[in-house]
Amino acid sequence: MIWQFDFIILALALICAVASISLKDLLSAAIVFGAYSFVMCLLWTEMGAVDVAFTEAAVGAGVSTVFFLAAVLHTSRQVKPRRHGRFFYKFIGAAAALAIGGVLLAASADFPTWGDPASPASIHVSPHYIINTIPDTAVPNVVTSVLADYRGFDTMFETSVIFVAGLAVLAILGRFGRRTRDEAPAEFAAVPVAGQSPIIQAACRIMVPFMQLFALYVLAHGHHSPGGGFQGGVILAASFILIAISYDLRAMIGRLRERWNMVFASLGVMIYAGTGALCLLLGANFLDYSVLHRILPATSPIMARSHGMLAVEVGVCFTVMAVMVLIYVNIASHGKSDKGL
């Protein structure tokens, strides 16, 4: 950790946070908020949290900014000042923030110093995982082994939450049965539909296959390097969103039909829970992958845990990819799945 660098990043984070809540134009606020996420991503890299930084770079600086832009373009762009009680709300907000902030500031005296190797969080449980991850699971990336194996139950429900969030967006914005069936999705390979300039379209068309290949690499190589199902899924979704932005939404839906997208979303959760259930069937605990060596050829119980993790990461990747695409489709087209932005 380099203190000058920390200081600059933290100062930039504060500036971006203040700017994004005080800008009157919501489009600018959304862009500044994307910059804020990117600054956070730098901060996490600085603290050695590479997996978190990777996720934030794909999610915060990428996909969530696009969600914001899509939502703002469908609603109003300008913030109107309050007509009544402006000072009242400012006072209430400031009072609540100062009260809670004051309590926390008072408590911060008891926090461990920043980067203290002997902080309570770092000396009790976590050494066990760092020391045992290779003997137990043969996975050098501790974040992956804790995510998909030691705390696999937790991650299964996180994946379910993402799935449910996708369903919720569909339930809120989706227009079931009201869509006219005559507008068939345009083919991607056909003459470019109305959208951005041909230069952007050609550039995106070259980029998309590489993005998808990279996403698969991130997914498959998450055991040995930063990455895994969450990051791979978000990058895959970003590649589809890129098609939707550079061509139009129908071009993307032509590639990834909504029905298939829903199948992928539920398939992901099913792969995860199914891997767990398979362990149950083989006589071990739920999500205890070591028992899978009985059905996988030429594996030891240790390597079986590594392979089991890959299976659930694939499940996570499917769900995350499908839900991100689903949310984008619904926000960008206001639930109509037509041309989009």
């Binding site: 603290m47 050695g48 949290a49 997996d51 978190v52 996720t55 934030e56 999610v59 915060g60 996909v63 969530s64 969600f67 914001f68 899509a70 939502a71 469908h74 609603t75 969080a121 770092s122 449980v125 976590s126 995982y129 760092i130 501790v142 974040v143 804790v146 995510l147 705390r151 937790d154 991650t155 996180e158 939450v161 993402i162 969030a165 996708g166 919720a168 967006v169 809120i172 914005l173 969450f230 978000v234 995350v320 839900v323 991100m324 949310i327 619904n330 926000i331 206001h334």
Partner: peptide
């Protein structure tokens, strides 16, 4: 090695966060 446990918890929190952000934006749009 830095402590990996907070990373795991927060990594999933970020992705769940963007999914719930989508829900919030969808409600705001309705």
């Amino acid at each position: 090695y830095v402590n990996p446990l907070p990373h795991v918890l927060m990594l999933t929190a970020i992705v769940v966060g963007v999914a719930t952000l989508g829900v919030a934006l969808a409600i705001a749009m309705s």
